[in-house]
Simulated assay, not measured.
Amino acid sequence: MKKFIALVSVFAAVLLVGCAPEVGSDKWCENMKNKEKGDWTANEVRDFAKHCVFK
């Protein structure tokens, strides 16, 4: 049963990641603008500056 739950969890994670917009796309930039600034990671800050501010 534990293996089944683990498999379902991995499958769900793959589906959720597959739905995320590509970093640097217009949709990704819009999502980042709406996200709380305190929740941004260092990589997200760098990517936002690179792709959304300094195109």
Rank of each mutant, 00 (worst) to 15 (best):
K50H: 08
K2Y: 07
K37M: 10
R46E: 07
F54C: 08
G38H: 03
M1W: 08
N34S: 11
C52N: 03
K2E: 14
D39W: 04
V8Y: 01
C52I: 06
K2P: 06
N43P: 00
L7W: 01
S9P: 02
R46H: 09
R46A: 12
A49N: 12
A6F: 12
E22Q: 12
T41D: 08
E30C: 00
A13C: 13
V17E: 06
C29I: 03
K35E: 14
K35T: 14
S9E: 14
A20S: 11
A20H: 04
F11N: 07
C52R: 05
T41A: 12
P21N: 04
F48G: 02
M1K: 11
A20E: 08
N34C: 01
E44P: 02
L7K: 06
E22D: 07
K55P: 13
W28S: 02
I5P: 04
A6K: 09
V45A: 08
A49F: 05
V10R: 09
E30P: 01
V14W: 05
K2H: 08
K33F: 01
W28K: 02
H51R: 00
V10I: 15
S9L: 13
K50T: 04
K37A: 10
K27W: 01
E36P: 12
A12H: 02
C29M: 04
P21G: 05
G18I: 04
L7T: 09
T41P: 08
A6L: 15
K37D: 08
A12K: 05
C29N: 09
K2N: 14
S9A: 15
G18C: 05
H51Y: 15
S9V: 09
C19A: 12
K55V: 06
A13M: 15
W28Y: 05
F11T: 13
M32R: 01
S25H: 08
K27R: 13
I5L: 15
K33S: 10
L15C: 12
G38L: 06
L7C: 10
V23I: 15
N43R: 10
A42H: 00
D39K: 13
V45L: 12
V45W: 12
G18D: 10
N34E: 14
E30L: 12
P21W: 01
N43T: 08
F48S: 00
M1S: 11
C52Q: 03
V45S: 12
V17L: 15
W28D: 02
I5Q: 13
N31M: 11
C19P: 00
G18M: 10
H51W: 11
N43K: 13
V53L: 14
D47T: 01
K33A: 09
G38W: 00
C29T: 00
H51P: 02
V8M: 12
W28G: 03
D47M: 13
D47V: 00
E30R: 12
F4N: 06
K50A: 05
C29K: 01
P21I: 02
V8K: 07
